[in-house]
Each structure stands twice: as C-alpha cells, then as structure tokens.
Design a protein around this nucleic acid. Structure first.
Lengths: 356, 356
DNA sequence: CTGAAAGCGCTTACAG
DNA sequence: CTGAAAGCGCTTACAG
C-alpha cells in the first residue's frame, strides 16, 4: 500500500502537521526533526497524493493549453515553450485541441471549473462565437492569438500589422498581383486578411476576391492541393502571402509542380517562422516573433490571474519582425497587369526529376 | 461560491447519493427524480470537483504523454492522435518532454505515482538508462518507441526492419555509397542504425564510419548545418538515409545549398511520413505507419493496464511500409567507388535563384 | 516548535 | 429506490 502522511508521521515520531511543514516549508522545523521526517519519507517511498492536495488547496499545479490544431509545426513549437515555461513555475500542462469548435471551448472552460486545472491558455478559433462570455463564471483564462476580448487577459502578436508589413515588403519589391492563401473565416485568417487589404489599399492596388484563396485545413498538403487548383485555373500571381509557414510549404510545392520557381517566377512569404522555414527550398521569408517570450508571458499572466482573480485585465502584445530569407526577390521590371501562364519562358517541368 | 453535491441534493430535495447516482449512472433512478436533480444541476451551474472525485476514486481521468522533443513535427502529429484517442475514452492528456533525460523520466514516474495522472505513455530517450526499473513501484506505463523493456507494456514500430528495408530500396536502385544522418547515441538512432548496417551487410557493402553523420539535435536546421559541413569536407554520397523526415528536410536543404539536386545527384529518404514530407521539394520517400492506430493502441493498452495492473505484459508492433515518393531514383550507371564532388556535371548553383 | 481535529467534495458500502 | 455516515489524504486554523 501507498504510504500517507500519517505513515510518515508515525515512523518519524511526529504529527502529520510536522510532515506537512517539512514538505511544504511553511514553517521553520528543527534540523533534527526535518531529518527524521526526510528519512521516513525515503524509507516509505512516500509521494504526496496530488488529488488530496488539490482538493484541500483548490490548486492542482496543472494548467491547460488549448490550440486549434496540434498537428501543426507551429503548435509543436508553442507546446514546447509552454511546457518549459510552465515547468519553470512548477506547473504541468494538459493539452487540448479546439478544432472541434465552440462546444469544445465551452467544455474546456467547465473542465477548468472542475478544478483539475488551475487555469487555461486558450487560442479560440472563431471571433464571433467565443466561449468567453461575461455571463459564465470564468476560470482563470488567458487568450492567445487573434481574439481581443476585453473580458479576459490576452497575449498576442499584432497580426494585422505583421501581415500588412510583409505584404508591404512584397509591394516594395515591385509585386502587384499578390495572392493570399488561407483566406477562410477563422479568426486568425480574418485578422491577417485585414492587414493584407490595408497594404494593398495603401499602394493603390485593388483587392481581387479571386486572389484570396481558402485552404479549409491549414496543412501543407491542403495548401498544395488548393493552390495547385488555383494555378490550374488562374493567371500566375507575382507573389503569394501565406497565412502560415506550413501553408507556404504547400504553396511552394504546388509552384514547383507547375514548373514555376520561387522566387524566380513567384515570391512567397509565410507567417510564424517555424524552425523548418529556414530549411525550406528556398528558405522562407516570414514573420518572426520570440515564441519563448510569448509562452512565458502567457504563463506569467495566467499565474498572476490565478493568484489574484480580481486584478485588472491585461493585454500584452509580443513584438514581431520580418525574417528576410530567399523566397522573395525584387521584380526586375514592374508589370501592371496580370501575367498569363502562357507567357512563362519555360514550360512546366518537374524540378524533382531534373538530372544533375 | 461553487455549488457542491450537497447544494444540488438540497435544492432537488434528495440525498447526495442520489445526485451521484444521476451523475454517474451507477444505479437506476426514477425519471422524476432524475429530472429534479438535473434541474438543480443546471440552476446551480454545478460542475463536479475532479480533485475530490480523484481522491475518492483513485482515478483522475488524466494520463501523461512524454516525448523526447515536443518541437518536432512528429511529436505534433503524435500529440494530436494521443489527445484524440484519449478523448474518445474520456481521458485527458498531460504532455511532458523527456529531453532533460533520465532524471526527467524518473520524475514523471513519481508524478504518476502522485496520482494526478492515472498512467503514462513514455518514449524514453536512452536505452541503457531507462527509468523503468524493476525495483521501483511502477505506475501504469506504456513504452512507445525503441526501448524494449520486458517489464512493461510496449507499443512500437519495428525500427530496425523499417530502416533495413528503406536502405535496401536505395541499394536496389543502384546506390552503394550511402550516408546516414542522425547517427548519435539515442535509443532511436541506435536501433535504426542496426537496420542500416544489416542492409549494407546483406549487399556486401562495408560500413564507413565517416558516412554515419550525427546531428545532436534532430531539427532540420541542425541537420542542414551538420550535413552541410559533411559535404564541405567529404565526397558526395549517392544516397542519404535520414533518421527522421525532419532531418531529411535539412539534408535536402544542404544539398541544394551545395548545388546538388535531389534525386538527380543524391537520393534521400526519411522516416515517419509526417504530413509535410509530401510537400517537400522533392516529395520525400519515407517510412509510413498508421499514427492514429499507433496512438489508439497505446491508449488501449494503457487503459487495460490501469484497469488491471496484474494482466500479462503486452508488446504490440504497429506495421510500417515504405511510402515511395520523388526523392529517390534509379541510378543509371552502377558505380562502385565514391564519386568526387568535382565529377558533377553541373557546377554549384542556387536553385532558389534560378529564373523562369 | 508540535498535536489533535476539522474539513476540502466526492462516492460507496451499509441500512432502511 | 433513497438516506446517513464514513473516509479518500491532505493542509490549516486552533490550541498547547
């Protein structure tokens, strides 16, 4: 049978309270007593029961992190940083996926209230239907990502500015017919699309609905399929803004399959600066931000909220910057109209079967 | 204040036991009583306290999944499948990273014993130093990956066979001077290296230590750097076996930076069939397995172990297959000696700046 | 500096 | 089909 504080106390010849004091360091305990207790703990292989402690204290030392799709490289890197940042504060992380939508988000909130977790870091999927409602008794929650709900704490990147700036970069390089991939109705896409539109408008370029290409799932394979179909039926754009690096990977793949080179024929940019974006061929120009800092900030804000539910609501913006790599280039001649697929100088070919 | 079973019972005019029966469905309850209870639950916004339930039942409904490095795309995909598979059984997943090594693994075991988690799915990093010891009182654990410890349940891929087969594929295509990237002292690398050696030996090719290239971290950027340095100082191999798809991404990047085409100059294969491997340029030939099935099997085995700690130990091998894509090709002429870098027909050039 | 007691909220034998 | 009581293992006022 598992040892309990009583067993330890009995063996050490002290009361359970003293054992607790030694374990939690709440009060000063004489060295002799401390040693007796520690010997008993070791002898009995005692491990405190966290459920009991959680019931007593109302804290379990566990938080949840809920991301839209755990399969994304972006999710992988953020999970890592959340786990590490939480670990530094003695917290453990439960992961959840919000892909299911609003129901899932609501369920996560109740689970927080069911107190196996002390708080929740939530990346909601849709703006208009967020589970975060004034009406509900709220557990400690930090929103990350695009939804700016003034009801709860919030850590984010200024997505709109970031996409505006990277679109501006493409415009400065002489591109005018610019497509955007991942333009669907998620919160992320909507907020980033605004930045895209702002940059076009500032340059006097009118937005074209046909150049706003959805990709219902944001996996690279989906982007390759959807953007590939776009290439089959439309003029080749001069540049492509991708909502994420993972989408950019699919876009580059589709361009290669159509015999188009990056950035020779088409410039491509991404968003997130995932590790793999540096080893794409070509290396990807993208939006970079300090993911470790992002995670640590979110954990800090959540910990502060857990400690004091009544503190003022915070909103923290993590800085971003453009990570310039090889996937974009200056257009030599400034073209005003759309370029026809037929005007390409070389016909389609599979670069992957080119012989050395 | 939060409502408790007592509050619900009082409001519904029944005993706490009846409330519990309604919530857990243990005994039959009359429809009228059930409705009264459900109304009270709704009215009081009652959510059961999982710490209390965990203390009482000795189960929290939470399991932990510990992977070596959460940043990997492979980890991302596995996490997704574990969370989904666990969710189907009403379980939640706590994630941990074992990169820290054995201490971390031991700590995870005690945490399991501290009973905030009912069990643990563990991918240990090193063969010889596994935290899994006969001596320690073991919580329910399922090992995944390469370590075959007959002490606990085990779900894995036959790594040795998989790498042997994919190396064999390269040999069948006429490659003889084959490098392997990621050859370090982790359990995964060691077991896969054995398969590599087996294939070479069966073909009468002697292993060359210089062709076994380590990459202390298995990120694509590390592989690009380490394999790039290898290319700077060695003859170009005819083919490269990568311990993972992520490593392959870095290897392909380094080859491009050296003006070598894949598979024109060098064939490359990976392992894992991550989603992104289909959109690499060229699409990657790799080892595929059913990740959903892998995760579900591990969860099943763990659930069975939790239900019956004394059942016989299980070991399940998930089938694998070669996913043939564009990154390998038949060598037209069979060469016996190493090819010099200088013998390439085309000089180095950056494919990324090639114009269309 | 330490001990005896109460209670966190739940579920489960034990009675009725 | 339901009620009253006990107890999971911990920590914290309350006394000494």
């Amino acid at each position: 049978m598992r040892a309990t504080v009583r067993d330890v106390a009995a063996r050490a010849g002290v009361s359970p309270k003293t054992v607790s004091n030694v374990l939690n360091g709440t009060f000063r305990v004489s060295p002799a007593t401390r040693q007796k207790v520690e010997e008993a703990v070791a002898a009995l292989d005692y491990v405190p029961n966290l459920s009991a402690r959680g019931l007593r204290n109302g804290r379990t030392g566990m938080i949840a992190v809920a991301l839209p799709d755990l399969r994304m490289s972006y999710s992988a890197e953020m999970c890592h940083h959340f786990v590490v940042a939480a670990g530094k504060r003695g917290l453990h992380v439960q992961i959840e996926e919000t892909a299911g939508g609003v129901d899932r988000e609501v369920e996560l909130m109740s689970r927080a209230r069911a107190q196996l977790i002390d708080g929740l870091i939530l990346n909601p999927v849709r703006l208009e239907t967020t589970a975060v409602q004034r009406a509900v008794a709220m557990p400690p929650v930090v929103l990350i990502g695009e939804v700016d709900q003034p009801i709860v704490d919030h850590v984010w990147i200024d997505n709109t500015a970031a996409v505006r700036e990277i679109t501006q970069l493409l415009i400065d390089e002489g591109h005018r017919r610019i497509a955007i991939v991942g333009a669907d109705n998620t919160a992320t896409a909507q907020v980033r699309l605004i930045g895209f539109h702002q940059a076009l408008e500032a340059a006097g370029i009118s937005a074209e609905a046909a150049l706003e290409i959805p990709s219902p799932d944001w996996h690279s394979t989906d982007a390759a399929r959807w953007f590939g179909e776009f290439l089959d039926t439309h003029d080749v754009p001069e540049a492509v803004v991708c909502m994420t690096d993972t989408l950019a990977m699919g876009v580059i793949s589709a361009l290669h399959d159509h015999g188009l080179s990056v950035p020779g024929d088409v410039s491509v940019v991404g968003y997130d600066n995932i590790t793999d974006s540096a080893t794409m061929v070509p290396a990807l120009t993208t939006i970079d931000f300090d993911k470790q800092k992002f995670a640590e900030t979110a954990i800090d804000v959540l910990a502060a909220r857990i400690a004091d539910p009544n503190r003022p609501i915070m909103s923290v913006t993590i800085p971003h910057r453009i990570m310039r790599r090889a996937s974009t280039r200056q257009r030599s001649t400034r073209k005003t109209g759309p370029r026809k697929t037929g005007t390409r100088k070389t016909g389609p070919r599979k670069p992957s079967t080119r012989k050395g």
